[in-house]
Design a protein around this nucleic acid. Structure first.
Lengths: 177, 177
DNA sequence: GTCTATATCAAGATAGAC
DNA sequence: GTCTATCTTGATATAGAC
């Protein structure tokens, strides 16, 4: 009955994760190293290992926290909106534009689900399912569309003169139930 | 009037890029280092720099070649199909499943367009525009959907029991003009 | 909880001989 | 076109003292 799940983080761990978040937001994903993070905290890199077992644990703590934040945003966007899908899409896109490096952290590598807060992925995905009246296949299609638009925009893959607002609208109008 | 564009590759450069492709396909993106590539070629890493100026040049030569291959595949899929969009989507998904690491190489970082073969990005995108009767906004929406489905599948982001064929169908049916 | 010192490894790239 | 030798950098992580 060994239930290996992330503990509730101590205050110090939360400080460390908060510093990691600032670091990623300000300097990008590649800047997230144990040394660099320690600099921000005013300590030496090896000290971090007294609080977190390794770098993956740090990343997953940050990812979990960001899922929590996204889930809250999406739930709020959904609440009492006349156009649930549109509101959700706007919240999704806005989050990624405000936190491009965090967005990449969450989406551009495979996840170790054992190291995430249990159920948090599902909680962040739930509002989309709800906005689509419980249609999970359609919700997955819309998620793929939203992620594709988002990451292609962040990575500068659309032509410079592309009208991305228009592309979002066309996609959402087509996919709306 | 200095027009800095990639030269036509010498035979040796093509050998090197071909070896890089095998390396990436068999061992993944992280395995692509100058040393590792040199091992495959039976030479030492510094020798590669006699043929290519740096690692970015190598990557972009490989990306250009892969765009060429994709463009040909997409054009063939489109030719004489009763369901152009469906045929294109199948070709897109199949390519990514057969060459997941190459697909990542092409999509998961920003491109230096100056280092790509001129016009190759557009050529690979053209079949999608054509399948959508020239509607560029819709073509971008469909591309985003296809990329999102593809990369989320490769990165194992959908639930294990998700019916991805169904999600693809729902998305394509909705977006079909 | 933090430190110093260190192990270990691997990366991109250059100089200069042959 | 390839070689050896080397520079430079930076990463994760551990041991053990304080």
């Amino acid at each position: 009955m060994t239930d290996e799940q992330p503990d509730v983080p101590s205050p110090r761990v939360r400080q460390i994760v908060a510093a990691a978040r600032e670091l990623v937001e300000e300097e990008g994903l590649d800047a997230l190293s144990m040394r660099h993070l320690a600099d921000r905290l005013g300590i030496r890199a090896p000290s971090i290992y007294k609080h977190l077992p390794d770098k993956r644990a740090l990343e997953h703590a940050l990812i979990s926290a960001t899922f929590e934040e996204q889930a809250a945003l999406f739930e709020a966007a959904l609440a009492g909106s006349a156009d649930p899908l549109g509101a959700l899409a706007t919240a999704y896109r806005d989050f990624a534009r405000r936190h491009p490096h965090l967005y990449r952290l969450m989406t551009q590598r495979s996840l170790d689900r054992d190291r995430l807060n249990p159920g948090i992925e599902e909680r962040a995905a739930q509002p989309m399912v709800q906005a689509l009246d419980g249609d999970r296949d359609l919700a997955r299609a819309v998620w793929a569309f939203a992620h594709g638009m988002t990451i292609l925009e962040l990575d500068n893959r659309f032509p410079a003169d592309a009208d991305l607002d228009a592309a979002w609208q066309r996609g959402l109008d087509a996919l709306r139930p």
